[in-house]
Amino acid sequence: MAYSNTIRTADHGLIDQIRNLVSNLRDAHRRYKMYRQTVRELSALSDRELNDLGISRSSIRSIAIEAAYGK
């Protein structure tokens, strides 16, 4: 009579999911900090300095989003 014995190792699925979640949260936080820093730095410029860079004040947030999160 033949039989089969299956030995399973510990399932690290939950641990891997938690690690991925933490990694994603860190990445999201880093990107948000980059967004806020870009908005802060561009907002500190005068209208003349922004004009020299070819940036209107109304486009600061969209530029910061692109800088932090890509297109």
Rank of each mutant, 00 (worst) to 15 (best):
T9R: 10
S56E: 08
N24F: 11
V39H: 02
L14D: 11
R40K: 15
N51A: 09
N24T: 14
S58C: 06
V22G: 14
Q17N: 05
A67P: 06
S58N: 10
S23T: 07
L42E: 06
R36C: 11
V39Y: 02
N5A: 10
S59F: 01
M1W: 13
H29V: 08
H29G: 14
Y3D: 15
Y35P: 03
S46E: 11
V22K: 11
I55L: 04
A10L: 12
Y69W: 11
A28P: 11
A2K: 13
I63D: 01
E66Y: 05
L14R: 06
S23R: 12
R30C: 14
L53R: 09
L21E: 15
N24H: 10
S4M: 07
R8W: 06
S46K: 06
R61C: 03
R48G: 05
E41S: 11
L25K: 12
S62V: 00
L14T: 07
I65Y: 05
N20C: 13
A44L: 12
G13F: 02
L50E: 08
I7P: 04
S4F: 07
Y3F: 14
Q17P: 03
S46V: 03
H29R: 14
L25H: 14
A44I: 07
G13Y: 02
A68K: 00
R40M: 11
L21S: 14
N5L: 14
L45E: 12
L45P: 01
S62H: 02
N51G: 04
G54F: 00
R61T: 03
I55N: 00
G13N: 08
M1P: 13
I65N: 08
I65E: 08
D52G: 03
Y69V: 04
E49V: 04
K33G: 13
S23C: 12
A28S: 13
S59V: 00
A10M: 08
H12K: 04
L53N: 09
H12I: 05
V22L: 13
S56W: 02
T38H: 04
H29P: 10
R31F: 05
Y35Q: 07
L42S: 01
R19C: 03
R36H: 11
A67R: 03
I7G: 05
